[in-house]
Design a protein around this nucleic acid. Structure first.
Lengths: 201, 201, 201, 201
DNA sequence: AATGAATGAGCTTTCATTCAT
DNA sequence: CATGAATGAAAGCTCATTCAT
């Protein structure tokens, strides 16, 4: 019971700290700010997390889970174009969300200090997406709908076409979160290009 | 004359400071470290740059110029595949160099404080590359070598295919600087995909 | 009955706290460490002792009792040299034990904050020893075995000869606990010197 | 020239810090207090000493020098009793001065953290004193004035007789700095006892 | 113009101590 | 009564920035 309360409090800390880290970046965010925003004292923070770095890591881990969950949609038995568009929409929406982009930016800021973070993010986000695409493309290839003898590589190409310039500009902070319409356009274009390049011979 | 000496000294500061910022990141790099490495005093630094932020901005501006210069190669009159591979190799080499990647990472770290930096980097690097591709693609379309009625968009697609997963992983710190062989493979794959997708109808 | 339990619990606290204070010193020892080692909570500690200082004082008081008990041996009717060696061995063993030396070190660390501690230690340890020596020397003087018209002063001299450089170096942390052989040598030398200096005229 | 000023400032820091450490002990003394007393800022302190421990070590080193200087008196060609009294007076005065006693107390407080300090103090103070006594006693033995075939051991005995109970009580904080009269009494008593014990056979 | 020295402000972290349960 | 959680206060240390020379 007490453990439940502790977990609940811990979650609140993670939430608040995430907001502060998102707003200010790792260095500019101070434990004082986080404690103040929490309405508690710094010492309480340290009762839950050994140090600032640990707290930060916990937040990134949490974000990785959140992002992983955004990629859970099951593909339907529709035709390949519709399916890829559905999968693509989901991926683009997830990866270009403020949540995901800001996480990436923080990870990049800290990647020198802790390269492990980037690895974990990659496994929870981009790689999960690419794997799911690869699985589907393998089946599509088997069904003769596309010609992708190396489905993993093909998935990489599709993934990058989906991310596109948009994602790149997002990470640089040059673009706001895209509207669903914008996402739709990007995804359509990406899938079209992909299907043309990988059309069955 | 005194001005020439001043400019020379300033350049040296920029050089040294760039090394330190690259090695340590914006926050971890201290004015003391830079001054020590320079063999001068901190006060001298402040005689040339109003503050740390200013110095950093100057370094990014300098890097933008450097990167821009890396993209100056003139395309030859060879066939389209060869030409695109040449251009692509140049772009990928430039964009995935430690120089460029580290610059991007620093810009991302500071993008909240100064979004203008990202804009300038984009204009000096990625956009220059894409524009040159667009110009060439327009001509190729006119010659009927590809079907790209919107050459700017096509250039965006080619650009992203060239950057590929590699570039993202580079920025996340997950990959070392690629070998020329690795670059060659990536470029070939990207150009092949592009030419298939944009083949003349 | 409840009081008995309380006393028992208190004793355990004193024991554990003593270990921690001995290992870490007053400042480095934290109430958290003590509570953790105790398997209880800090608040419990405060139910038994008003504050850290109080707890420390209790430990020193306890140590004084322990040390006092080490000096309880009754001297035998043997010849003076044998008797002084027996008494001396006991004193040196007691005073140069880790227990006693560490206590002295802690007292010295805290002597500015609470000079009373040193007084109590002195009364429980060194003074007790000296008094017993004085009592015996008075009798020996009466029996004409030595010439010590001021037996208290003579006892002081003997005491210091017994402690010797060894004790001094022990307190500075320059020597480990002496072996029985080492003690024997020191005691013999001290008693010899003493008996020569205080030989009956 | 600038170095001279730096050294001067450093000396002032050592002086002030010593006072604070003497008054408060290592742990209770804070860098803030020292800086405030200095009229400067903490950062200045850290420009001269890497950290608190370093500053403390410098102070102890300085005190060791001071104490060593107190033991520089050259013994005269007077008779042995007078000479030993002169040497003894000097030793007791030096070793029981507040300066020396407080230094020892601080060293004891820190001896667990840095046992090296105690060693250096021992070498600068007590050992120097004992060595000088040993040198003189060797000569006196050669002249047949005393019987001390092992002059080093004899010097140890004399040294401990000189320090006496007084010194131990000083270190425990039980006695104020002794008056010259008190010192005289102690020294006379010690030398008398020593000369009786080591009288030529 | 260049420098060595100085500093104010602030950061992370710790700890003795106290409540609410 | 015992406890887990919370905290105010402070400590050591750092750094961008500014003077005095």
């Amino acid at each position: 019971m007490s453990q439940a309360i502790r977990d609940q409090r811990r979650d609140r800390i993670v939430q608040v700290a995430r907001d502060v880290f998102f707003e200010e970046g790792f260095n500019a965010a101070t434990m004082s700010t986080i404690a103040a925003r929490l309405g508690g004292s710094k010492a309480t923070l340290y009762a839950y997390f050994k140090n600032k770095e640990d707290l930060f890591d916990a937040i990134i881990a949490d974000q990785c889970q959140v992002i992983e969950k955004l990629l859970m949609l099951e593909e339907e038995g529709a035709d390949i174009r519709t399916t890829l568009i559905d999968l693509g929409r989901e991926m683009v929406t997830a990866m270009s969300s403020d949540q995901s982009v800001r996480t990436m930016q923080l990870i990049i800021e800290e990647s020198r200090r802790n390269p492990e973070l980037a690895r974990r993010f990659d496994e929870a986000g981009p790689q999960v997406g690419t794997e799911r695409l690869a699985a589907y493309l393998a089946k599509a290839h088997a069904r003769g709908e596309i010609s992708a003898p190396d489905p993993v590589h093909a998935a990489g190409v599709l993934a990058i076409l989906l991310k596109g310039e948009l994602f790149f500009r997002r990470v640089l902070g040059l673009e706001p979160e895209p509207t669903p319409e914008r996402i739709e356009t990007e995804v359509q274009s990406a899938v079209t290009n992909f299907l043309t390049a990988y059309a069955p011979k």
